[in-house]
Deep mutational scan, measured.
Amino acid sequence: MATVKFKYKGEEKEVDISKIKKVWRVGKMISFTWDEGGGKTGRGAVSEKDAPKELLQMLEKQ
């Protein structure tokens, strides 16, 4: 499965696309949330040019 790689608060992170729940556009950035388990929700953002095609497809479906 595809993953999204991004930096959050200076830390490199990687999230499996299948865990992503919500995707939206903020200017030229793609923001998203995912389920971290245990009732926690993670947040992240990646530039439109660095976003994997699967993430962009999720954005178009909404």
Rank of each mutant, 00 (worst) to 15 (best):
S18G: 12
G44T: 08
K53G: 14
K22G: 14
V15W: 00
V4T: 01
R25H: 09
G10H: 02
F32P: 00
A51Q: 03
G10Q: 02
E60S: 13
S31N: 11
E14N: 03
R25S: 06
V26D: 14
K21F: 14
E36R: 04
Q62Y: 03
K28R: 09
E11P: 00
E12N: 05
G38W: 07
R43I: 12
S47L: 08
D35K: 04
I20W: 01
G39L: 15
D35E: 04
R25G: 12
I30E: 00
E54Y: 04
T3G: 02
R43T: 15
L59G: 04
G38H: 09
V26L: 06
A51L: 05
K13N: 03
V15H: 01
K49C: 15
V15D: 00
D16W: 04
V26G: 07
T33W: 06
K7W: 08
T41D: 13
Q62N: 09
E14C: 07
K7Q: 07
T3I: 10
G42T: 05
K53H: 05
K22I: 12
R43A: 09
K21D: 11
M29G: 09
K21H: 11
D16L: 12
V46R: 01
L55W: 03
Q62R: 04
K49N: 09
V46G: 01
E14L: 03
V4E: 00
G44W: 12
L59K: 03
Y8K: 02
W34Y: 09
K9G: 06
T41S: 09
Q62M: 08
K19F: 13
S18C: 11
G44N: 03
F6Y: 06
A2E: 07
G10E: 02
G27E: 11
P52V: 05
Q62D: 14
M58I: 12
T33P: 00
Q62H: 12
K49I: 10
E54Q: 08
K7M: 14
I30L: 08
I20V: 05
E14F: 03
E60P: 09
M1S: 11
S31G: 06
K40V: 12
S31A: 06
Q62A: 15
L59P: 02
K28I: 11
I20M: 10
K40C: 15
W24E: 14
K5G: 01
L56R: 09
L55D: 00
D35T: 06
A2R: 05
K7Y: 06
M29V: 14
T41Y: 09
W34G: 00
A2L: 06
D50E: 09
P52A: 05
E36N: 05
G38F: 13
L56N: 06
W34P: 00
P52H: 04
G27R: 07
S31E: 13
A2D: 10
V4N: 00
Q62L: 12
V4C: 01
V23Y: 08
D50L: 10
M1E: 15
E60W: 03
T41H: 14
W34A: 01
K28Y: 15
I17E: 02
V4G: 00
I20H: 00
A51V: 07
E14Y: 03
M58A: 12
W34N: 01
E54K: 04
L56F: 13
K9L: 09
G44D: 01
E14S: 05
V26P: 03
A2H: 12
Y8N: 03
F32G: 01
K5R: 15
D16C: 08
D50S: 11
M1I: 15
I20Q: 00
A51Y: 02
F6A: 03
I30A: 02
E12W: 15
I17T: 03
K28P: 12
E11R: 06
K9H: 15
T3A: 03
M58F: 04
K21G: 15
L55F: 05
T41N: 12
D16V: 13
I30R: 00
S18D: 12
P52L: 04
K22Q: 15
E54G: 06
S31M: 06
R25V: 06
G37Q: 10
G10W: 01
E60V: 09
W24P: 00
K40Y: 12
D16S: 09
V23K: 02
V26E: 14
E60T: 09
A45Q: 11
W24I: 14
I20D: 00
A51S: 08
E36Q: 11
V23N: 01
D50Y: 08
D50T: 07
E48D: 14
K19V: 10
K13F: 07
S31R: 06
E11A: 06
Q57A: 10
K5D: 01
K21V: 13
R25F: 12
S47H: 14
V4S: 00
V4M: 02
M29A: 13
W24N: 07
G27W: 07
K9N: 12
K5N: 02
W34H: 05
Q62V: 06
K40E: 11
K28Q: 13
K61V: 13
W24D: 09
S31Q: 10
R25C: 15
G39S: 13
E14D: 05
V23G: 04
K61Q: 08
A45G: 14
K22Y: 15
E11L: 06
S47R: 11
E54M: 06
D50I: 09
V26Y: 06
L59N: 04
L59A: 10
A45W: 11
R25I: 13
E36S: 08
G42Y: 09
V23F: 05
E60K: 12
M29F: 08
G37M: 11
R43N: 14
V4H: 00
D16Y: 07
K19D: 12
E11Q: 12
Y8I: 03
G37W: 09
W24C: 15
M1Q: 15
G42L: 13
G39C: 15
V4Q: 00
K28C: 15
E12G: 03
I20G: 00
A45R: 08
A2F: 03
P52W: 01
K22M: 14
I30S: 00
M29S: 14
V46C: 05
G44I: 06
Q57V: 14
D16P: 12
E12L: 13
L59Y: 11
T3K: 12
V26C: 15
M1W: 07
K9C: 15
K22H: 15
G42H: 08
K5W: 01
D35G: 04
K9E: 12
P52G: 04
K13Y: 12
F6W: 03
K19C: 14
G10S: 02
E14P: 00
F32I: 07
R25W: 06
K5P: 00
E36V: 13
K22A: 15
E11I: 12
E14H: 06
G27S: 12
E36H: 06
K61G: 14
L55S: 00
E54A: 05
F32M: 03
W24H: 15
E54P: 04
K22E: 14
